[in-house]
Write a protein that binds this DNA or RNA. Structure first.
Lengths: 132, 132
DNA sequence: GTCGGACCTGAACCTGGGTTTAGGTCAAGG
DNA sequence: CCTTGACCTAAACCCAGGTTCAGGTCCGAC
């Protein structure tokens, strides 16, 4: 019995992605080039898991390029934790900064919802220091 | 004595923006069309304050289009607080969602920094539920 | 044999928020 | 007179992360 393979449409359905996104990922090295059978891609079943990993990493704030580097070096045999930790260490401060900024925005907006100013010129929310 | 006016370079310096950004804002209706004197823009001094408002609003998470709408309706005489509150009310849940997501990412990354998994396949961080 | 659906390719297009470039105008100063 | 610097315009370009389009192929069913 040969290995079960999937067409691109099936992969897309399984992974919850569009067909075009999968071709895009292949083109950009996030997926290995699938073998062509009669000109059509046949994917091994594990590509679905790989797409899941990509999805999780994206959610975690990595760019596709970062994910590509991560997967790539792991494909070459590097232990997952080394690459991942390096990437995570780099990304953590970025995330902290993002959280800080979002919170500042949130607070500003909360105050803005209560603001009764007639003009923006008068409003303390738009005073020079307010962007800090 | 006539009103003090500024050239685009002066405005840029005062506002801490690039000249091209200011032309861009004018083109896109965030600034009123400056009068041309000998083909060159002359801005009233209050444009600097307006640019400050735009900056604060951007920091608060508004898109330029949203800022344009806000300023536009205020220019038409609407009280600032009405437009602002409507916009803020719309934007607050978005910000809350952004904060939640960033926090989830941060937590995931923090765990990732400690993870000792050899392969991503084994790693609970990349299990199906991990993106939730 | 021809229809339809799934698939293929490369290239163009999209969004946002500007920047860069090419080519032209204007006024001041040496 | 000629140069320098600040300014003008329209249009092209940048980034990521894809989507859409035009035109072609392949396969099974009817």
């Amino acid at each position: 019995m040969t290995e079960a393979t999937l067409g691109i449409g099936e992969v897309a359905r399984e992974a919850g992605l569009s067909v075009s996104a999968i071709r895009f990922y292949e083109r950009n090295g996030l997926l290995p080039e699938a073998e062509r059978v009669g000109g059509k891609r046949r994917f091994g079943v594990d590509v679905v898991r790989r797409l899941g990993v990509i999805g999780v990493a994206k959610q975690a704030g990595f760019s596709l390029e970062e994910v590509r580097v991560l997967l790539d070096s792991i494909d070459r045999g590097a232990p997952a934790h080394e690459e991942l930790q390096a990437l995570a260490a780099h990304k953590l401060p970025e995330m902290d900064a993002l959280i800080e900024r979002s919170r500042a925005m949130r607070d500003w907006l909360a105050v803005a919802s209560e603001c009764g100013c007639e003009s923006l010129e008068d409003c303390p929310l738009f005073a020079d220091g307010a962007k800090a």
